[in-house]
């Protein structure tokens, strides 16, 4: 098993004819993901690298049985595209797009509440279940199938962690990049719930960063509910307050959301925290040796 994406994923790529969309649709397909359709309004009845392109998401569901979307639609139109995917009844929407206005995400998030569609992102690298399906922009070849579930707010830092794991000979069940924006479709806790229930996942690596309180809430959840060990790293220990560190969500405001604070909450909850980003793989390896 794994979570969110696997052999049953039937992927539609929204924005498949763009530079990013076409490149990554091809890469996902080459990795073995079933890329069944693309959607670009006005370009229906065409195709992109032999993948059929439709005008609407609903058509891709009706004709190709799409159940998951990978979304590259530009920021001004992304909220609309997410809601279209939800309206078409997809199970999962993975939104790569960066720079969606916060108030657009407020409306999207409210609209998705209680529905069947789960949103990952926006501003995220996507989801990969090694050996089964890649729904995102991560380099597939650094991954390896195995027992570690990875959940993270960042992109390249997650690749770094995966690379460390793979170098230790440790594979991953699923890696989920939840995104660096202040408002996200899926948070740490929902992903932790999925990992807790997934028989293939034995250990979880959580990579957080400064800003907001998502890590603190995750710590409370882990302490109360998780039976599987979780290892944590928090980026931004040297970040100054009041400055946005690249990610829209990575900002220490009003003295809140510092790395020190988050690390402290995790350690008080009995969670092991890697002080150095170079130690993520090693800590997981040590934890697994004790199991």
């Amino acid at each position: 098993m794994s979570i969110l994406v696997d052999e049953d994923t039937r992927l539609v790529v929204q924005g498949i004819t763009g530079r990013e969309g076409s490149f990554h649709a091809k890469a996902c397909n080459e990795y073995g993901t079933k890329v069944v359709a693309g959607v670009v309004p006005g370009k229906g009845k065409g195709s992109q690298d032999s993948v059929p392109v439709f005008d609407t998401v609903a058509e891709s569901v009706a004709k190709e049985g799409a159940n998951t979307s990978l979304l590259f639609v530009p920021a001004p139109f992304a909220a609309d595209a997410i809601l279209e995917a939800s309206d078409a009844g997809l199970d999962l929407v993975v939104c790569i797009t960066e720079g969606i206005p916060v108030l657009d995400m407020v409306r999207v998030s409210r609209s998705l509440r209680g529905g069947k569609t789960r949103l990952i992102g926006p501003n995220c690298p996507g989801v990969i279940s090694p050996g089964k399906a890649k729904v995102g922009i991560m380099p597939g070849h650094i991954h390896k199938r195995g027992p570690v579930g990875v959940v993270s707010r960042s992109g390249t830092l997650t690749y770094e962690a995966v690379w460390q794991l793979s170098n230790h000979g440790i594979g991953q069940s699923t890696c989920v990049g939840i995104g660096g924006d202040p408002i996200l479709g899926t948070g740490f806790i929902q992903v932790l719930e999925l990992f807790e229930a997934d028989p293939e996942t034995r250990v979880v690596l959580l990579i957080g960063e400064i800003g907001g309180t998502a890590e603190e809430e995750a710590a409370t959840y882990i302490k109360a509910t998780m039976t599987k060990p979780v290892i944590v790293y928090i980026a931004g220990q040297t970040a100054p307050p009041g400055r946005r560190m690249g990610h829209a969500g990575a900002i220490i405001s009003g003295g809140k959301g510092t790395a020190a604070e988050k690390i402290d909450v995790f350690e008080k909850a009995g969670v092991r925290v890697a002080r150095s980003p170079a130690e993520m793989g090693e800590l997981i390896a040590n934890t697994m040796n004790l199991m």
Partner: peptide, 21 residues
């Protein structure tokens, strides 16, 4: 650095090795 998370982590590791980013 490429990527915000890795950039923050890189600053952190410079500091851990006794330097200042």
């Amino acid at each position: 650095v490429n990527g915000a998370g890795l950039a923050m982590a890189t600053m952190d590791i410079v500091k851990l090795h006794g330097g200042e980013p």
